[in-house]
Design a binder for these strands. Structure first.
Length: 256
DNA sequence: ATGCCGGGTCCTACCCGA
């Protein structure tokens, strides 16, 4: 099974990119983040013609996640369990495929709106930890994949490109990411590439792509039994060099 | 130089991203 994630920074701007990419990469399941539209604005017809069924958790202008799949799936959750019911941010989709739970996330950045914004990020991560623990307790194999907005270690961003107070690297953020690892989840990219510097995002500004000033913030975490089946995990770096790219590239994992 | 580009929207000045 081939599972992918891609923060597309507006699906309406990136529809042709995604169509071409799924044609050449043939993922079984692709999670999208920052689609920046409501479900009614999502270009589902084109993806359907390409053999993919879509499920959309949309929001006007900001956030928004979706899943495209060419294998049958069942939608389990359209919001992160534990968040208040009036939370309007579209950042979570959970589906089940063949007894495996697949969770696509767009984790809050945490740099906006001061202390409140950072507290929201940490609370979101706490609920994600709780969801992972519940699935472990139920012995359900699962993948959490998407834009985590976390650089887990100092190897995961270009030297000097982030201040130590940035919400992507702050100790409280990394502590919660480590909690996911310590409960037994495997960081798929790092399991395959333990030492290389690997990025999944390059800012549009200041020639970040040309100077290779990037971040590794898009991740796939695997529960123990799925980690044993991990074959490959790679960002598709070439996408960043194409015309009108997203600032993130796709990440693809293969389970044997 | 935390807003240099590139999305979005109460349509064009301003909010947001990492």
């Amino acid at each position: 099974m081939k599972i992918a994630t891609w923060n597309v920074n507006s699906i309406r701007q990136r529809e042709a990119h995604v169509l071409r990419w799924i044609g050449q990469t043939q993922p079984d399941v692709l999670f999208l983040q920052e689609i920046k539209c409501e479900a009614s604005g999502f270009p589902a017809l084109g993806f359907h013609a390409a053999g993919y069924k879509a499920e959309v958790v949309g929001q006007k202008a900001y956030n928004g996640v979706a899943v495209l799949a060419r294998v049958p799936f069942r939608v389990v959750h359209q919001a992160l369990p534990g968040l208040p019911p009036d939370d309007a941010q579209a950042r979570y989709i959970e589906v089940e495929v063949n007894g495996i739970t697949l969770i696509g996330i767009y984790l809050p950045n945490g740099n906006s709106r001061g202390d409140d914004g950072f507290a929201y990020k940490l609370a979101w991560m706490d609920h994600l930890v709780n969801r992972a623990q519940a699935l472990l307790d139920a012995d359900i194999p699962f993948v959490i994949i998407g834009d985590f907005n976390v650089c887990p270690t100092d190897d995961d961003f270009a030297p000097g490109s982030l201040s130590p107070t940035d919400a992507l690297v702050r100790p409280e953020t990394r502590q919660r990411f480590r909690r996911l690892l310590w409960m037994g989840l495997t960081d798929a990219i790092r399991a395959i590439h333990p030492h290389r510097s690997i990025y999944t995002f390059w800012d549009y500004q200041a020639g970040a792509w040309q100077r290779d000033i990037g971040l590794r913030i898009d991740h796939a975490l695997l529960s123990p039994s799925l980690a044993e089946q991990l074959v490959s995990a790679d960002p598709d770096k070439d996408e960043r060099g194409l015309p009108q790219p997203s600032d993130h590239v796709p990440v693809v994992i293969r389970l044997g």
